[in-house]
């Protein structure tokens, strides 16, 4: 059963990629698929902070902005190669995460949420007001280097990175911090360090997503990274399930396609979108996947993975 489903999944992905390679998808659909991959990176990276480490951060668009602007400016003004630009975008956002994480992660719960929200806005307002970023007019003419394959590849690397990290001793330290900070500390875990590391890695991947985003849309301005973008990522995360990477993938892809599909209802589009979100949250408040992964659902006996160490009972 498990094998069949995995094969079906791999088959579907292969078919999708062959379809793209043969040019069977139009430009519009390809664009939405690329955005879906970028949103998966954003949601999975926020999951590392909010879902696995339990630190409620809602300023993710700020880190995405740092990555996007760093990458765009390096491409436009310094003409660095694309792969280096992507790494630089991720590194800049990761460093910003480190700087912002050190003071704010002393706060808990609502207070941390408000502080991260504030920092997200500060980043946006700074970009809005310094000349080198083009201010409110944004940065046009960024080379179109992000195609579907690039976005998809970076997405897979991100998911493998986070999955492997979470399923290790270090990952269990993140989970311990989420469950009970005092107990985690008593078990010999430097909780402050782990919170800052999770925050910085999460921010780094958001920056990576931002770099892809800039080279996909070819134009960025501060409005792309507003508070609403942070909320959009948070909605994807909560809908998929805090602590489930499978949930992040499904919800990010679903919620990227849903508004596009709803375009046919024109004026009622956002009403329907919101109504669907409310219905889903009412019927499944723990998110589509709760804390479970695909491997848990399939009773997949992985090697040392969360698969068999977690409760096997489905709820």
């Amino acid at each position: 059963m498990a094998l069949v489903l995995i094969l079906a999944g791999v088959g579907l992905l292969t078919a999708l990629n062959i379809g793209v390679a043969l040019g069977r998808f139009d430009q519009y659909l390809l664009g939405v698929m690329t955005m879906a991959a970028i949103n998966v990176i954003l949601t999975a990276s926020l999951n590392l902070i909010n879902g696995f480490t339990g630190q409620f951060s809602i300023g993710h668009a700020g880190f995405m902005a740092i990555g996007a602007y760093t990458a765009a400016m390096l491409s436009l003004f310094a003409h660095w190669p694309f792969w280096l630009v992507l790494l630089a975008g991720a590194a800049a956002a990761g460093a910003a995460g480190l700087l912002i994480g050190l003071p704010t992660l002393r706060l808990r719960g609502d207070y941390l949420a408000i502080a991260t929200l504030g920092f997200g806005e500060i980043i946006r307002v700074v970009i809005l007001n310094i000349p080198v970023t083009g201010g409110p007019r944004g940065l046009p003419g960024i080379p179109n280097l992000t195609n579907f394959f690039v976005a998809e590849g970076v997405m897979v690397v991100t998911l493998v990175f986070i999955y492997n990290l979470v399923n290790s001793s270090h990952g269990r330290a993140f989970l311990a911090v989420r469950e009970d900070e005092i107990a985690a500390e008593t078990m010999g875990i430097n909780t402050t360090a782990y919170k800052v590391i999770a925050f910085s890695i999460g921010a780094g991947f958001a920056g990576l997503a931002g770099s892809l985003f800039a080279h996909h849309l070819m134009f960025i301005n501060p409005a792309s990274f507003s508070f609403m973008k942070s909320i959009e990522i948070l909605v994807m995360l909560v809908l998929g399930g805090l602590g489930s990477l499978t949930g992040s993938v499904v919800a990010a892809v679903g919620l990227t396609f849903l508004p596009e599909y709803l375009r046919q209802f024109s004026d009622y589009r956002m009403v329907l979108y919101s109504a669907l979100l409310i219905v889903m949250m009412l019927t499944r408040p723990q998110g589509l996947f709760g804390k479970k992964e695909l491997t848990d659902l399939l009773h997949f006996e992985g090697r040392g993975g969360l698969g068999h160490s977690r409760d096997q009972k489905l709820d």
Binding site: S169, D180, R310
Partner: peptide
């Protein structure tokens, strides 16, 4: 103060944290 949402095995594995070298 156990890690309630984690398995019994994970609770113990976490406690070995200071001996982890990887």
């Amino acid at each position: 103060r156990l890690f309630n949402e984690l398995s019994v095995l994970d609770n113990v594995r976490i406690a070995y944290h200071r001996h982890v070298k990887s």
